[in-house]
Deep mutational scan, measured.
Amino acid sequence: NDEAKKEAEKLWKNNKSEDEIKERLERAGISPDEAEQWLQELR
């Protein structure tokens, strides 16, 4: 999970869309709710 979150953070810094980041997190096995929460922390 931490690995996926690091990846999400990297994508965020590269200005990827939130949808793309969420999709990537969900593919890594993170629930949509958790993915949404993680994005809010990044904002």
Rank of each mutant, 00 (worst) to 15 (best):
N1M: 14
N1L: 14
N1G: 10
N1P: 14
N1V: 14
N1H: 14
N1W: 15
D2A: 12
D2Y: 13
D2W: 14
E3W: 15
E3Y: 11
E3G: 09
E3M: 10
E3F: 11
A4I: 13
A4H: 10
A4R: 06
A4V: 09
A4D: 02
A4F: 09
A4L: 15
A4P: 05
A4Y: 07
K5F: 15
K5S: 02
K5M: 06
K5Q: 03
K5C: 08
K5R: 12
K5G: 01
K5D: 02
K6C: 15
K6Y: 07
K6R: 10
K6I: 08
K6F: 06
K6H: 05
K6N: 07
K6D: 05
K6V: 07
E7F: 12
E7R: 03
E7H: 06
E7G: 03
E7L: 15
E7S: 05
E7N: 04
E7P: 01
E7I: 12
A8T: 04
A8W: 04
A8V: 08
A8P: 00
A8E: 01
A8L: 09
E9T: 08
E9P: 00
E9M: 13
E9G: 06
K10M: 14
K10I: 13
K10S: 10
K10A: 10
K10P: 03
L11H: 04
L11Y: 06
L11R: 00
L11M: 15
L11T: 02
L11K: 02
W12G: 02
W12P: 02
W12K: 02
W12F: 10
W12A: 03
W12S: 03
W12V: 03
W12Y: 12
K13I: 09
K13A: 11
K13S: 09
K13Q: 10
K13P: 02
K13L: 12
N14A: 14
N14M: 13
N14K: 06
N14S: 11
N14T: 06
N14C: 15
N14R: 04
N14D: 14
N14I: 07
N15D: 06
N15Y: 08
N15M: 05
N15C: 14
N15E: 04
N15S: 07
N15G: 15
N15H: 10
N15A: 07
K16E: 08
K16I: 15
K16C: 15
K16P: 05
S17C: 01
S17D: 09
S17Q: 04
S17G: 05
S17R: 05
S17T: 09
S17E: 05
S17F: 03
E18V: 12
E18M: 10
E18H: 08
E18N: 04
D19E: 13
D19V: 09
D19C: 14
D19Y: 07
D19T: 13
D19G: 06
E20F: 12
E20W: 07
E20G: 02
E20H: 03
E20K: 03
I21K: 01
I21P: 00
I21A: 03
I21C: 04
I21W: 05
I21V: 06
K22P: 00
K22M: 12
K22Y: 06
K22T: 01
K22Q: 03
K22A: 02
K22C: 05
K22V: 03
K22D: 00
E23Y: 05
R24Y: 15
R24H: 15
R24L: 15
R24C: 15
R24E: 13
R24F: 15
R24G: 09
R24T: 13
R24W: 15
R24I: 15
R24D: 09
L25G: 02
L25Y: 00
L25S: 00
E26L: 14
E26F: 14
E26V: 13
E26Y: 14
E26G: 04
R27F: 13
R27Y: 11
R27K: 14
R27N: 13
R27V: 11
R27P: 06
R27M: 14
A28H: 12
A28I: 13
A28P: 04
A28M: 15
A28D: 10
A28T: 04
A28G: 07
G29T: 01
G29F: 00
G29A: 01
G29V: 00
G29N: 02
I30G: 01
I30H: 03
I30C: 00
I30W: 12
S31M: 05
S31Q: 07
S31T: 11
S31N: 08
S31L: 08
S31H: 09
S31E: 06
S31F: 02
P32G: 09
P32E: 08
P32K: 13
P32I: 06
P32F: 06
P32V: 08
P32W: 10
D33Y: 10
D33P: 03
D33L: 10
D33V: 12
E34K: 11
E34V: 15
E34Y: 03
E34P: 02
E34T: 13
E34S: 03
A35G: 01
A35L: 09
A35M: 10
A35D: 00
A35V: 15
A35T: 06
A35R: 02
E36M: 09
E36W: 08
E36G: 03
E36D: 09
E36A: 10
E36I: 06
Q37M: 11
Q37C: 12
Q37W: 04
Q37R: 14
Q37H: 07
W38H: 02
W38G: 01
W38E: 01
W38M: 09
W38A: 01
L39H: 00
L39M: 07
L39N: 00
L39V: 05
L39P: 00
L39I: 12
Q40I: 09
Q40T: 09
Q40E: 11
Q40C: 00
Q40A: 13
Q40D: 11
E41H: 11
E41Y: 11
E41L: 10
E41V: 09
E41K: 08
E41R: 08
E41Q: 12
L42T: 02
L42V: 02
L42R: 05
L42H: 07
L42Q: 04
L42W: 12
R43N: 05
R43I: 08
R43E: 03
R43D: 03
R43G: 03
R43A: 05
R43F: 08
R43S: 04
R43Y: 05
